[in-house]
Design a protein around this nucleic acid. Sequence first.
DNA 1: GCAGCAATTATTCAAGTGTATAATTTCAGC
DNA 2: GCTGAAATTATACACTTGAATAATTGCTGC
Lengths: 209, 209
Amino acid sequence: MTARRTFKREGEEARRTALIDATLDCIAEGGPQAATVRAIALKAGVTPGLIKHYFDTKEDLVAAAHETLMTRLTEASAAALDDLPADPIARLTGFIANAVTPPVVDPRAMALWAASMQLVPRDAAMRDVHEATYLAFRDRLERMIADALRAAGKPYDKPTTRALAIAGNALLDGLWIEASVLPDQFAQGEMRSIAIRAFARLLDLKLPE
Amino acid sequence: MTARRTFKREGEEARRTALIDATLDCIAEGGPQAATVRAIALKAGVTPGLIKHYFDTKEDLVAAAHETLMTRLTEASAAALDDLPADPIARLTGFIANAVTPPVVDPRAMALWAASMQLVPRDAAMRDVHEATYLAFRDRLERMIADALRAAGKPYDKPTTRALAIAGNALLDGLWIEASVLPDQFAQGEMRSIAIRAFARLLDLKLPE
DNA sequence: GCAGCAATTATTCAAGTGTATAATTTCAGC
DNA sequence: GCTGAAATTATACACTTGAATAATTGCTGC
């Protein structure tokens, strides 16, 4: 009579990632307040009670979701590196262009990133995650900058390279944000061109457009 | 017996701004989900019912708070301009230094800004506010860049100045974010120095440190 | 000082929240 | 096929949420 809902047993890992993905979807669509246990469960095709089974508390699930998000963003940028040419200058140029064009530029990712950033000032764990991913990205950029300068026969030293990496990272972040949030403000390919020219001036290098 | 709470009548404007300030405080301290009508009223020294009296709905209050936040950020940056020197180069340098050091650099402001950014992709009104404040800030920077280039006798044209303003704006945004969120990563005065040197390379100008 | 109106508080309510627990169902091992 | 343990659903609950309404208070104009 009451016809209890039928279900299939999925592995623990599958269920955890499904719940995490559902959480990220909810946050992206409606902000943190939209990520209720019921909404998450619905989107994951599951009953609210199951969340309790895999995560002690909803807070744990949200924390896991944010960590997963950051890890994915980092991995996505790392994966893109594999497809870039070996020549240091072309490699750096491709890296820059990647960072300021779709699919890296993406309103949904940007909304999720903003949700995470909001937590950083008051959550030590989030700060640690942010610091680690920030430094990993920046260090990678610093190495590419050093390689490019060396390939071009330009002099460089550690403190200057560090400063350039910090500035270059900030530049890419800022362009990524605006391109994601106000796509209509920029013509097709304009962001790419602006980013590459800015880096060329910053590093005093000729970068191929 | 029941000793009803005593109160004073404040003007409508005073109450509205008090409620808006309380809302921003709540969001800064605990994110959007912490901004409940009760928490806001408590912080404003008022009863929850009064919110209804001044704002039809809580959503209206939150929207007003975000708009106020953006306006204040813009006004703060405009006010700081008045204290800067008239010489275009020194003026631009001071503007840059301002943007990447306290009190403009501030974890609380950054958390609030992140909360706003999160809304932009899915709220047309927020996007309009963001677009207007973004363009206002960028236009101001573009004018200062043009003035500095002219003062230094450098050639410049409109499209290049525009690109430089977009890049410079992004650079300042990115540095502001990281300085606000990971203050321990940067030595005293390092951000200032990095920002000024980066702009000097970007514009091919000598900027006084 | 008093009348009346608007500001403010107090109270109430239905809906939604996270979580705990009990009831069922799936499925692997025999 | 049976059994038992683990996964999943269903139900219940206490609490918080935003909002609506009623009761009171402060204040302005006379």
